[in-house]
Design a protein around this nucleic acid. Structure first.
Lengths: 232, 232
DNA sequence: ATTTGACTAATACAGTGTATCGCAACAGTA
DNA sequence: TACTGTTGCGATACACTGTATTAGTCAAAT
């Protein structure tokens, strides 16, 4: 019996793990946004059937959770600079940059509690940098406020960016000249302050806007941190 | 030929307009979250076929846009108090309250630029209250920062609230005792600062946390507003 | 050698957003 | 009054989704 008479051994299914699954999902999302991530497509990218994924994940939401945590590995800086303010600033900027690389993250940011190992590590690093600067509750408040700020700011920035891409115009031009609806609204005279803002406001780069907003918030935090903790 | 021999006249389709469509969609979302909103179900609630909606809407996303704008009618206060700080605070709190009434709003907040008439009215009212307190760019920056803060904070609050509901535990208890994963992570000793925070942090009511965070941010804004505009 | 158990693949289902198409009722005209 | 054009509606259809269930197949254990 020659080799050719014998059938090839059955191809064993390609081994799988969460890491490969998440990587495939992230690749899909990077290319086509979150809506391009379907369990079928993720599985296909790994030469597997869709149901195979349910051994590693029990719902699609969990896949999203894993994706978010994976990106947090990019957010965690390799080494921390000392100053608490710098730590918070770096965290905000790294989150923003990660979101610019993975725009779909904007859709998930703040949507669910992040409890993955990488996200926890980020939180740990942040808390550690603020440890002892004030009473614990004040520190936690500070971290939450800064997180709330950059979460909201990043989401907004991505939302604007998508709108610009969809219309092919910069935000101002699109509000001003070519957003027919907006223009019509402003022309009604019912929104004088808004009209002035759209008309006379200077266009600032998104990063600068983000940075200065962050500075304001950090100033506020600084004011509360230096002050001795309110008596409990 | 008696009445009974003649068939009833064909039932004219029930008249429709965006208002009714949006109301139906909001009702569905209030009951079962955003994912309960499908064009088929919205249409069914109005005794219409799904395709009928496409006369009023050209995509499901547009329906969401209309829903968001509709809720902004609840956010716009009937009469404005004078102080700029109060105006910003009220806007933040009303947005939060609206989101507590319509939790699905948290999934949409900050996701797309809001250009509906009600949303524009809210922005107009806010800008008007700050008009003249500083140069225009500073004012716009202030509004954006406050918006970013409360957007992020509200999303986070709703995310936590859902997690609590899903586990039936308060956030702290769930992090502490019964979140097996979190506990295991903390037990590794790799997250000392986080462990301390979870252990020793006092549980604050969500509204209080929101309010004091907002106050910090408003303090920061106040500092920049009173200062004369930076020379351009 | 046979059974068991764990994975995998296939099938199936109910539901989704939306494109297309044919019909039926109205408006306007002859 | 008869006809015709237009408009808007409903039905149908399509490609696709997440996931439950079922059947199969292989490696390890008995």
């Amino acid at each position: 019996m020659t080799v050719w008479d014998r059938p090839e051994p059955p191809t064993r299914p390609v081994p799988l793990d969460r890491e490969r699954i998440v990587a495939a999902a992230i690749a899909l999302a990077d290319e086509g946004g979150l809506e391009a991530v379907s369990l079928r497509k993720v599985a296909a990218r790994l030469d597997a059937g869709p149901m195979r994924l349910y051994g590693y994940i029990s719902t699609k939401e969990e896949l999203f959770d894993l994706m978010v945590d994976e990106v947090h590995a990019e957010i965690l800086p390799e080494e921390q600079p000392g100053d608490w303010r710098e730590v918070l600033r770096v965290r905000a900027h790294r989150t923003r940059q990660a979101t610019l690389r993975h725009e779909w993250l904007a859709d998930l940011l703040g949507g669910r509690p992040t409890l993955g190992p990488n996200a926890l590590a980020v939180t740990e690093a942040t808390l550690a940098a603020l440890d002892g600067l004030a009473d614990l509750d004040t520190v936690m408040r500070a971290v939450e406020i800064v997180s709330a700020y950059f979460t909201g700011a990043i989401r907004r920035e991505i939302a604007d960016l998508r709108a610009e891409r969809a219309t092919g115009l910069s935000k101002r031009d699109w509000q001003r000249a070519s957003g027919p609806h907006v223009m019509r609204m402003l022309a009604t005279g019912r929104f004088p302050a808004l009209a002035k803002a759209v008309h006379d406001g200077t266009e600032v780069a998104a990063e600068e806007s983000f940075a200065t907003g962050l500075d304001w918030v950090l100033d506020a935090v600084a004011a509360k941190l230096t002050r001795p903790p309110a008596g409990v």
